[in-house]
Amino acid sequence: MPKTPDTAIIQIARNTSGARIVLDHVTKSYANQPVAAVEDFSMTAEPGELIMFVGPSGCGKTTTMKMINRIIEPTSGSISIDGRDVLSLNPHELRRHIGYVIQQIGLFPHMTIAENIAVVPKLLGWSKNAIGDRIDELLTTVELNPRDFAHRYPKQLSGGQQQRVGVARALAADPPVMLMDEPFGATDPITREKLQAEFLRLQDSLGKTIIFVTHDFDEAVRLGDRIAVLSDRSQIEQFDTPANILASPANDYVASFIGHGAAIKRLTLIPVTDAVLGPVSESSGGPITVCDTDTLRDALDSLVLTGLAALTVVDEARRPIGSISVDRISAVLGADVATPTVQASRP
């Protein structure tokens, strides 16, 4: 194996905070199957964007994702990262610059947590000191104390801790692109929610371009900058922001995928401050208030819980800044629906 990666890979690697990924008419078909697994898939992910692929099992979303780091080779079409054709690069060197997290995590059981994280930096020939510093930094980032965890083996960690290590390992060489295949799918709901929140905070500071595959629409709404709703053969039914998809699903398929309670789900995306707040005097007071950093869903939750017509909205210093009522929440949704949205057309 030659040790010198070609310049295209170096250029991809140098850009650590998000790269543009373009998939152009990508198709994957298998010789023994009459129908293609992925057919004519085109999409552009902007730098720093978190794109969710949502769809039922077997719709080809994972296959589509795995073609980006060439775990699966496309049959036709082209894929580029920052304008460089992925298919012309050495696949092994390419993958060292694309973070990869899978549902089963796949930590190496015979290596310590530190050794697991060190794999890619070692492949890239980093110095021992640089690797050691990076391990400490990453474990701290994913909220695992390096002193406690660096020398443990994967078996000695809980599922949630293992998945954090999985994310840290994928981030090891600071790749511009991350591919995540249902990374939180195997964890319990409480752990999952915690991991999602941590992950969002992490992404805010890192700004990687991330392709995130899930079958959980709520997760897609919670995390994604944009969501691609996929059907069979990885056909894009709609590709838009969570708010727009919830407000106006492109077709029945997307609507059925959203399921019931689309309005409630939309409320989770809208901060209280987006509503036109009423005067403080409208609220009848009481111990329960809504913070201005909450979402409209939190506000609705409190309204239902108290049974009051309106609640006081307070700022971080707990000074009242206005009031919120069910009518005012509905008004926000109405305004949102009226906004025209970009919709993908059915083929």
């Binding site: 092994h92 993958r95 060292r96 899978i102 089963q104 995590i105 796949g106 190496f108 492949l123 591919l179």
Partner: peptide, 27 residues
């Protein structure tokens, strides 16, 4: 050897020989 372990080794950019030497054989 667990398929997920093998896949993550590949996904991290190990060559087939490196997967064999550093992951599959030790396990």
């Amino acid at each position: 050897v667990d398929e997920s372990v093998r896949e993550s080794a590949r996904g991290m950019g190990m060559t087939p020989n490196q997967v064999l030497l550093h992951v599959e054989l030790p396990l």
